[in-house]
């Protein structure tokens, strides 16, 4: 969603804490954070819907507690929020590894004997994407989640990843081209 204006002259994303319209921000950002986590964690474990909700909640609660410290002169609110989301995601991944959750490629192997829900999840488009991105480096997966889950523009992604804006554009272009080809190959193989 394009950042809109609450006060003439300044985008809402760059207003100070007192000026921000929290309800509107929540309505705009909650679905984006939610989808960011859907893209980000679906490959780690099955039954991740609850985890996605948990991580979204954790992000907003952390941001809400700290919102008095938000500095609008340094970054836009959504950039700030997604930085928190990234940290929440990293915590989750490290905890997942400690708990010994299966990575998706391993999960795919055991899916044959899984429950119907598991099959449905694996058959979903998101799981298809997960299989395609399983071999990608962490950075590329993050780019996909920020672009297509969180709907961020390249400039904001650059701010969050430390890459240059043009580099983000180039990387995403290549990634999408590769994924699209694999996506269609997979679809035709499935049809056959």
């Amino acid at each position: 969603m394009v950042v809109q204006q609450a006060v003439p002259g300044r985008p809402m994303d760059r207003l100070s804490t007192d000026e921000l319209e929290w309800d509107a921000l929540y309505a705009d950002l909650a679905p984006r954070v939610y989808n960011y986590f859907r893209f980000r964690i679906s490959r780690y474990r099955m039954g991740s819907e609850a985890d996605v909700e948990e991580l979204t909640s954790r992000t907003f609660e952390r941001a809400w507690r700290a919102r008095g410290n938000y500095r609008h002169d340094i970054a836009g609110f959504s950039t700030w929020l997604f930085k928190i989301a990234q940290n929440v995601g990293l915590d989750y991944h490290s905890q997942s590894r400690e708990r010994g959750h299966l990575p998706l490629d391993a999960a795919i192997d055991v899916a044959v004997d899984g429950t119907p829900e598991l099959h449905a999840e694996l058959g979903s488009d998101l799981a298809r994407l997960a299989t395609l991105t399983a071999s990608l480096p962490e950075r590329e997966r993050e780019l996909i989640a920020l672009k297509y889950g969180a709907s961020l523009n390249n400039r904001m992604i650059a701010g969050l990843t430390g890459l240059s804006e043009s580099n983000v554009g180039t990387l995403l272009h290549r990634l999408v081209r590769t994924l699209r080809a694999q996506w269609h190959e997979q679809a035709s193989a499935r049809d056959e």
């Binding site: 909650a30 679905p31 989808n35 994407l129 297509y148 709907s151 995403l172 272009h173 999408v176 699209r180």
Partner: peptide, 19 residues
């Protein structure tokens, strides 16, 4: 860049959860 297949993967969160 045709990225429709990725754009389509988004879905809205459950309203109860948002509430």
């Amino acid at each position: 860049m045709n990225d429709d297949f990725l754009q389509r993967l988004r879905k809205p969160p459950p309203p109860e959860f948002l509430d």
